[in-house]
Structures are given as C-alpha cells and as structure tokens.
Design a protein around this nucleic acid. Sequence first.
RNA 1: CGGUUCGUAGCUCAGCUGGUAGAGCACGUGACUCUUAAUCAUGGGGUCGAGGGUUCGAUUCCCUCCGAGCCGACCA
Length: 578
Amino acid sequence: MNNMNLSEQEQIRRESLDELRKLGINPYPAAEYKTTAFAQDILDNYTPEKNNFQDVCLAGRIMSRRIMGSASFAELMDSSGRIQIYVRRDDVCPGEDKMMYNTVFKRLLDIGDIIGVKGHVFKTQMGETTVHVEEFTVLSKSVRPLPVVKEKNGILFDAVTDPEMRYRQRYVDLIVNPQIRDVFRKRTQIIQSMRELFNSRGYLEVETPILQPIPGGASARPFITHHNTLDMTLYLRVANELYLKRLIVGGFEGVYEFAKDFRNEGMDRTHNPEFTVMEIYIAFKDYNWMMSFTEEIVKKAALDLHGKTEIEYGDKVINLNPPFKRINMTDAIKENTGTDISGMDEAGLRAVCDKLNVPHTASMGKGKLINELFGSKCEHNYIQPTFIIDYPTETSPLTKMHRSKPGVTERFELMINGKEIANAYSELNDPIDQMERFKDQLSLSEKGDDEAMFIDLDFVRALEYGMPPTSGMGIGIDRLTMLLTNQPSIQDVLLFPQMKPESQKSKVESQKEEYLALGVPEKWVEPLKKLGFTTVAKLKEVEKHTKLHQDLCGYNKKHKLGLQNPSQDDVKAWLNLK
RNA sequence: CGGUUCGUAGCUCAGCUGGUAGAGCACGUGACUCUUAAUCAUGGGGUCGAGGGUUCGAUUCCCUCCGAGCCGACCA
C-alpha cells in the first residue's frame, strides 16, 4: 500500500475518512451550504440584551478543540475570523443515537476539517461570545495535519515563521497566520483605490499584450518563448508602455493598465521575476501635472488604507502628505556628494566616480555614469517622498527632451524609503527624434550594453501619425504595497513569490511483484523500500551484498520487526551476484 | 555569482569533545457537560535535506550537491 509513505497522523485521518463514509457521511458533500453569519459579525454585534443571532448558520475550519467528555469547545475560523463554538452531546444528538457526537465529532473530526454549524449565540461564564451548536455538517475532511498555532493574550506559540513554508505553501500561511490575509486585502484595496480615482476621471482601463514580438518599453532582459503555430519567437513583456501610447495615438484621453511585467533578472528583497506595475498615460499633460497627480494617487491610497498619510515602515515614519520634495538629479547629486556635475563631460564624470568609489565600465556613457552616481550615492537617502527630476537623455530614450535645459529629459522618479516607487515622463512624441533615440540604443547594444532597447518600428509608425503631448507614469504596485503594509520583502506582498522547485523525491516505485521475482521474501520488500531501494533497479546497483545484509538486519532490529534475518547468501542471491 | 546562517517527529525547537535521538504542541486510548495555550493518565510516531568520505561506529567531523533566509555583487 502507498500508505507506507504517509505519516501516522495522515494514515489515521484517512482511516477517519473511510469511517465517515461507512457511517453514511459524505466527507466532501456537493451541496451548497447556506450560511447566515460570519464569525466577526457575531463577535462585533452580538449582545445578550438584544438576544440576536439566535438562529445562525456559519461554516469554517476547526482550528482548535477542547473536549470535555460529553461537551466540547472548539474554534471555528471562517474568512472573517475565529469564533468559539460549544458542542454538547445531548444537543447535537437529542435522541438515543449519540453517534454524531461520540464518534463523528469527538473521534473522526480533526483540527483543519471544515464544518458547518447551526445554533444560537450566547456568552460563556468567562464572557466569550460562543455559538451553541445544535447541528453540524461535515463539509470537507482534512487528511493532512495543519501546523497548530496557539495563542494567549496575543502571544503566539509555535507560530509558523519558516519563510520557505510560508511562501511555498501560502495556503498554510494564510490559514495559520491570518494577519497575512490582511496584507493581501490591503494590496487589493490599494489597487481599488487607484482604479476608483482613474475611473472617476474617465480614464479607460485596458489590457495589452503580454506576449510581444518585440520586448519594448523598458531596458531589461526578457523571458523568451516560442509560438508553435506562427513559428516565431515571442517575449514576455518587460513593460506595456509602447502599447499604451499606441492607444493614446488611437484617440483615448487616458488609458491605464495594472500589468504583470516579466524581467529575467536577479531576485532579491525588492525584485521578483514577475511583478505588477500600474501604468497610466494621459493626453495633453506633462510631467509637472503628472507629479501632482502622483501625489494625489499616493495620498489617496494611504488615506483609503490607513485613514492618514503618516505611515510607519520598519523603524521609520514616512509622511505621504503632499507636496513632496522636488529636486533635479544634478542638485540631488550635489546635495548628497558635494560635487557639482553640471556641464561635465564623460571624462569628468569618470573622475567623479573614481573619487567617490563608484564602479563604472568602459561601455557606460554620460547618462549611465550619472545614473550610477545617483544610484549608489543618493537614492537610498530619500526616505521621505521625493521627486527626482530631469534624467539624462541617454538612459531615457522614450522621454521628451527638457523644454529648456539641454542634455536632460522631462522625466521624474518618485523615491520613497530610498526606493523607486514611480517613474514618469513627458512622453516623447516626435517620431523623428524617437527613431534617432532607438538608433542610439542600437549602437549602445552594439557597444555591449545588453539592456539597451530594441527598435519597435510599428511604434515609430504610430508616432508618425501623431501622438498628442502626453504624460505617462508607472507605479510599482508591489513596492507600494510593501511600503503601505510595512512588509520588508516583496515576497511578503506576492501571494505566490517565485521559488525554486522543491526537490521531488522519486515517486516511481517498483511493484511488490518485481521484488518477489528476484527472490526477495514478501516481508522484506517494505524494509528494502524504507532503506531507499524503492525500485528494483536501485537494488541491482548494489555492489556489496554484505552491506545491504547489515542494513537489513539493523533495520529489523531497530524497528523491532521480529523478522528472521536472511542469510548473507540469501541477500547475495536477490542481487544475482556471483 | 560570492560571503554567511540554517535544514532533526505533522508544527515549534533541544541534542556537549562522534556511541543510530529528546521536549512541548499535535496524534492514539481512557476520564471529564462552561473550556479557552483546557486539565489528568497513558501510548505511538523519526532513512536527523540528499550523496560521498574519514571512522569499529556519523544527526554530530570533512567534501559535493539540493533547498531557504540574510548580507553583498549584478540588475530596475
């Protein structure tokens, strides 16, 4: 039986499952279970004086049990929270037959099972609001034991904190660490908050291709895939920017998308290979307007979530109340390093980098060097929200040149807590300039810059028809969520963060008959499997029968199987050794 | 990619200078009709991440690999 692979507790639960069926109880019933209340609603609103909730029906997972003979307390957890239930034998079994209590509730149900209960609410002598159960229904039997977390006075005992378990088995995390559910509710609330604002302005939510023939709109290594029917290479998008701007060309006033983007790059506390960005493009606006709009978006999200703009992140207090500080990149570098780089050429910038111990390579041009200086010396210092304005042209190939300052573009990034949260431009709508910028990117990539952008000729064609002056902005939803929910890692705001696969133990096992065919007595088959010889092929690889013989005898002794040990020659014969 | 810490029962964790493993919760059995980390009694449960090496003997020491966290590098 494959039950040999199951733990004792799993086997017992499977036996309970069979017993339930034998008693005529379907452990996985199909019918809708109509509930009339949620746990939190009862906890919040029950008052003995009102005598309300006297006929309630709720469903949830059994999270703890305290059985005291013919009466029991248990905790039921539904989507809203936990509530205590009180199950008394003579109430759930009013007649002679006490099976539902004695056998089903006490013996066959476990922590983790999902049941429905009907009953009335009361307060115990200890004052705890409790559902006095008159009838219960098995809704789903759990055959795998759940980690048991206990709690007293807000202190958790044996809480599951192992990040591997939490991220790989998020379902378990969500069950036993219910505060984690709040993080994800808040994530959705943030998205809702933004969506409300955009819709109220009449902007259109759209969907654009994830599979793209040209991975445009950002500088990043893409994931590559292949379409069989078209027999062509496709890329998972690194950005959706170029498609959204095509829609502005098409005549929409404003378009936005909550988009999953994919970048085939490193992973750390702030990077996951797939991540969510909200990008919005609005015609006839510029980046100054967009800065104010970004302030409004962030402020609204904070208010919708917390009712205030002052938030705590780690040991920091961050105030998201506008206006945010605005500083251009040159001044930012001066502010943080004391060095004024305005008007410097490439050689001058390299000297500054050397002086400040900022690493640089030969393939870096002016823009990259400035980016590098900012990235390593300035960025992390902007804890309070700050717009960094006017980025070098070289690293902003989709951005309009600054209206008055030469050499820079009308671009800003919003820094909060030393991290980029948003990125926005006055969009480049000059098709001739755009083509030139793409060509510059091409020569950069020929110089060895593997993150230079690809040329998207169709996008240039769209611009040739004419795109209104437009401002666009992207916000990293994951990072914004981290910030607003005070989570230290991007993995904590992604329901299923990317993980390396678990090493699968080989599931292939030889049948008992195959061992018997080798002359192995039936009683020794399971011990052999337990010792790792799960297939006869593995058995045939054994070179020293004496070692196997020792292991088998040792296993017999250790597990007190009481089997008669085989002789060395017997073992030798199984292996077909000479 | 480098440094570092870690992987032991379903869960949380002990385990000394090498002698094949312990606790609490959970689970089984019994007692208990207002408990709440329920309690009391009793019992079972482990290829100590995988593979190799040293050794009479490895959970422990060494090497390789797999997985995770943190720090750094690279990267937006």
